[in-house]
């Protein structure tokens, strides 16, 4: 296996292995990969803290019930898997501003945070509209 320090594994190899993980998931658990529904369920869980009755009446939260299920754990697993992989290969690095961003927009953390929040909002709205 290729392990050139910062380049990581070949994307073809890692991608093919991810494909095998997906096949096993479909076979064993009957689950296809996805992530964005988890954000809907989590948003619902957060809203429920403030107004449970309101959430229970909303169409979208009736369709996507705010609870922990397979996909929620899958997304949490991605965090864990990345943490394990990076800390065991010395590629974990605390960074608030990506290199490519810094080259173009400077090292300001607030600027990056603001654009990332707006980008996240827009991206999730679009993903949900497209059904993915």
């Amino acid at each position: 296996m290729k392990r050139i320090d910062d380049k990581g594994w070949s994307p073809y190899l890692a991608g093919a292995l991810a494909g095998i993980v997906m096949i096993l998931s479909v076979w064993i658990a009957g689950k296809y990969f996805g992530a964005s529904t988890t954000f809907v369920r989590s948003a619902g869980m957060i809203e429920k803290i403030f107004s449970a009755e309101c959430v229970e009446k909303m169409d979208y939260f009736i369709k996507k019930v705010p609870k922990f299920e397979w996909q929620w754990m899958f997304v949490f697993g991605i965090f864990m898997g990345s943490l394990i992989s990076s800390t065991t290969s010395r590629s974990f690095k605390c960074k608030a501003v990506p290199d490519m961003w810094e080259d173009r927009f400077g090292p300001g953390k607030m600027k990056r945070a603001g654009v990332a929040v707006i980008g996240g909002m827009v991206a999730m709205f679009g993903a949900r509209l497209a059904g993915g």
């Binding site: 993980v21 998931s25 990969f33 899958f74 898997g81 394990i84 992989s85």
Partner: peptide, 18 residues
């Protein structure tokens, strides 16, 4: 199952730097 699948997938995503 969700957790284990996610860990394997996250591990590979990190390895490929994607």
């Amino acid at each position: 199952y969700g957790l284990i699948t996610g860990i394997m997938f996250g591990f590979l995503l990190q390895k490929a730097r994607v």
